[in-house]
Write a protein that binds this DNA or RNA. Structure first.
Length: 206
DNA sequence: AATCGTGTCAACCGCCGATCA
DNA sequence: CTGATCGGCGGTTGACACGAT
């Protein structure tokens, strides 16, 4: 990839990481952990910006990062959540264990975007979900997500919660959405749920 | 064999919100 | 309260790989 180069103004190295640099960063983090990205490079003996170190760790060096081709299941998940969340890559990446937001974003632009435009998903029927179908708030929201498909504007979804979740969610609501999930609409839905249940963390879904 | 065009993906850039001094 | 710093995010770039001509 990019050949390492030195920025004469800042004195920081840019471009591709060498195996030596990788080793320094991995050794430092495994020994001292992540405490301050902007100060760490100096202590780790690297002439890189904190941002560069963070990116390298998050996208490549972190042992939790999965390498290799995306599975069909992972691609389905990305398509599914992209249809709802749009270009919220970090939120989508959280739904694909072991994949970074950068990887998800790249894969979308390189492969999935074309697939969507070439082979749009057909319109789904209106869907009604009730608490009887699910066992947890998270599952309910997953059902909610499943009722959408991409590339159309005519599906609708009614979601109702009821006694199954009591006393966790002590309310009944139905929410109608007339387009396949603009971020504002989905957020509005979540806020309804969230405002009625303190244990229901919005971040857990993202 | 050489050149060109295209795809892939690691890395950079700029912006923004949160936190700190 | 305010400015500085940091971390995180999404958009974009550009080097390299590889197939087509």
């Amino acid at each position: 990839m990019r050949t390492p180069r030195c920025n004469s103004q800042s004195g920081l190295t840019k471009g591709s990481w060498s195996s030596e640099e990788d080793q320094k960063l991995v050794t430092y983090i495994s020994r001292y952990g992540i405490w301050n990205w902007s100060k760490m490079p100096v202590y780790a003996g690297l002439s890189r910006s904190g941002k560069s170190c963070r990116l390298r760790w998050m996208n490549y060096l972190n042992p939790k990062v999965k390498r290799g081709n995306f599975t069909n299941e992972e691609e389905k998940t990305i398509l599914h959540y992209h249809s709802i969340l749009g270009n919220k890559w970090s939120a989508i990446a959280k739904k694909v264990p072991g994949r970074s937001d950068n990887e998800v974003k790249n894969h979308w632009h390189a492969h999935l975007k074309k697939r969507i435009t070439q082979d749009p998903v057909p319109v789904t029927k209106p869907n009604k979900i009730t608490s009887q179908d699910t066992e947890s708030p998270t599952e309910l929201v997953d059902h909610f997500f499943s009722s959408f498909s991409t590339g159309h504007t005519t599906s609708s979804c009614t979601l109702e919660t009821g006694s199954v979740f009591e006393p966790v969610i002590e309310f009944e609501t139905s929410y109608n959405i007339t387009s396949p999930g603009t971020v504002e609409e989905v957020e509005s839905f979540w806020q309804q749920l969230y405002s009625n249940n303190e244990d229901f963390e919005l971040q857990d879904l993202l």
